[in-house]
Amino acid sequence: MKLSDLSESSLRDRLAGEGLTLRIAPVAARIRSEVPAVAEGLRLHYADYELLDGEAFCDFHIRISPPANLRRWFRRQVRFLHDGISPFEPMPWEHAFPVFEWGLNWCMANHFHQYLMIHAAVIERADGRAAILAAPPGSGKSTLCAGLVARGWRLLSDELALIDPRALTLTPIPRPISLKNESIEVIRRFAPAAVLGSVSHDTHKGAVAHIKPPRESVRRAAEKARAAWIVFPRYQAGAPAEPKPFLKARTVLRLAENAFNYAAFGETGFRALVGLADACGCYEFSYGDLGEAVRVFDALPAGER
C-alpha cells in the first residue's frame, strides 16, 4: 500500500494518532504530527512511498509538534523530536515541512553509520552510471541535481550519498529535492512539469521549496548504483559549463570535508574514499546555465578505471 492510497483525512488522523510508518528506502520511519503542513507535505512529496502498516521495528520515531509553551498559540512554532529528543531549536509553524526534512537528515547523519555519509546529491544516468555531486550549501548542487532529474536522470538523493564503505555501492534514499531562493524560479522555468510544493519563506536558509521525487526513482529505490563521477559543482553567473579534471588526492580530501561521519570509519573510511576516487572521473564543475550544464552531464565520458 502506498501513501497515496490513503484519503486526506485518514492520513491526517494517522499522523495525529498512532503515527504513520513509511519506508523511505533503507529507513523505516514512524512519523507523528498534528501540524497540517506536515500532512500536506507528506501527501504531496511522499505519495509514492510504501506504507509500512503494523511494522514492528522503526529506525526513527519522529514527531513534529508545537512546543509546550505560549508559542503553541502565539507566533506559533513547531519543534522536531526524534524519539523524544529535540536536536534543534523550535522553528516557525509555517516551516513545518522543511523542519521534517531537516530533521530526517539529522537522524540519518547522526545514527546511520552503517554507511559512510557525504553531504552530496547522487543521480544516475540512463546508462547506469551515477554521479556524486558534493558541495557545501549554496553551491548550486541541488539546482543541478533537480535539472538532471528533470531530464531523466534517476534521483538517488539530493542531500546524502550513502556509501557502503567496503562494496563502495551507493544506496538510494530518494527524497524531495530542496531548492533555495533563486533556484526555485530557475527550476520552474527549466522544468515546468516538475511538481513543486509550497514555498516556505524566511527560513534560516531563505525561501525553501521542495520538488517531488519522480515516481520511477522511488520505485527503484532498492536498486543500488555505482559511482562513475565525482563532481564538485559551483554555480557562477555567466560561467561556461566546464568540467575541469580534479586531482584524485584532492578529491579524497574534499569528499572527507563534506562527509558527516568520515571520522567514525577511520582507515576504512579513508580506503573507501580512495577507492571511489580511483574508480571515478573527478571534476570541478562551474556552470552559469542549467541547460548547458545538463548537456555536459549527458555527454560525460564513462568513468576511468
Binding site: F88, W102, N105, W106, A109, P137, H204, F260
Partner: peptide, 12 residues
C-alpha cells in the same frame, strides 16, 4: 539555554 541551528546539528 540555547542549542544549535539544524545545519550545525546536522554537521555534528
Amino acid at each position: 539555554s540555547t542549542s544549535s541551528a539544524p545545519e550545525a546539528a546536522l554537521r555534528r
